[in-house]
């Protein structure tokens, strides 16, 4: 990864970004710095109130353009400042899925909801139909085209919002806790889809998420926020191995890592780098069954 990244320009560059909501007394983001390269899959992790939503909204210019407050620093998307490019233009590059599913459905039908972004991009009719069909299939909502979005369940609404953003084929897709209303199977499906978009279409993905297991499995990189500050930024294997920091912040590591960590503390002889996913664990722990 790093070898290829060195040659590429970062697609997202956040420099010294701070933001204070107009009605708040404390900054929601403090001096955040990081970059994301094209094709990366980045997860943002943090407790409630850590600033995940604020950061996501900064990535397409909603902050500071549509939310009142004080912003410092810069956020560049493909070299363009989010202060200067209107959100509606930036939307052609950055797709956004918000955390509240019900409030982000604005059209009269499911089909219309997915079509909205495509219409605004000027996608020709025939292609529009193909993309809508594809997107609804991917999120498992085919057959509900004529339904009103308001009549869907919370999970269905969330998947519809993802379909609507996804169908626009943005270069960057930002998702703010997109699976909170989904059952485990639904969650799994959404992450499968995101992974496919990432692998097959090379879509850059930034996702705020609190389920560490899925982050460990799918993300290339994890950014941890705590009370508006960026604490760590690195590959999941590295980040989750720092079990002390993670638990100090009140977060969890994947259970397999936690398991290994505790065993190690008890004196078991385990590899230097603890596994972070189940498959990984099966590989690494096989043959370590015995005592030292």
């Amino acid at each position: 990864m790093t070898a290829t990244n060195a040659a590429k320009e970062p697609i997202i560059r956040v420099e010294g970004l701070s933001f204070k909501y107009a009605t708040a007394t404390e900054k929601a983001l403090k001096e955040i710095n990081f970059t994301v390269f094209p094709g990366e899959y980045v997860a943002i992790l943090g407790l409630s109130g850590a600033g995940k939503t604020t950061l996501c909204l900064s990535l397409n210019g909603i902050i500071p353009q549509m939310v009142m407050g004080e912003k410092e620093g810069r956020c560049l998307i493909k070299g363009q400042d989010t202060d200067e490019v209107p959100v509606r233009e930036m939307a052609k590059t950055v797709g956004m899925v918000f955390d509240n599913p019900e409030y982000q459905l604005t059209q009269l039908t499911v089909e219309g909801e997915v079509a909205l972004g495509l219409e605004n991009l000027g996608i020709p009719y025939e292609e529009m139909l193909t993309r809508i069909k594809e997107a609804l299939k991917v999120v498992g909502l085919e057959g509900l085209e004529e339904r009103s979005p308001m009549q869907l369940s919370g999970g269905q609404q969330q998947r519809l919002a993802i379909a609507a953003a996804m169908a626009m084929y943005p270069e960057i897709l930002v998702l703010d806790e997109p699976t909170t209303n989904l059952d485990p199977i639904g969650k799994e499906e959404v992450f499968e889809v995101l992974q496919r978009l990432n692998r097959e279409k090379g879509m850059t993905i930034v996702i705020a998420e609190h389920e560490v297991e899925v982050i460990a499995e799918y993300a290339d990189r994890v950014i941890i926020l705590d009370r508006g500050e960026l604490i760590t930024n690195g590959p999941p294997a590295e980040v989750f191995n720092d079990v002390e920091t993670i638990s100090r912040l009140g977060l969890r590591t994947p259970q397999v890592t936690e398991f290994g960590y505790r065993l190690k503390k008890k004196g078991h002889n385990l590899p230097e780098q603890l596994p972070i996913t189940l498959q990984d664990a099966v590989k690494k722990y096989s043959g370590v069954g015995g005592k030292k």
Binding site: A22, Q65, M66, V67, M68, E70, E72
Partner: peptide, 14 residues
């Protein structure tokens, strides 16, 4: 920042 505090920010179109 101080300058912004003094002048009332425009109500965003949203």
């Amino acid at each position: 920042t101080e300058a912004k505090l003094v002048k009332r920010p425009r109500i965003p179109t949203t």
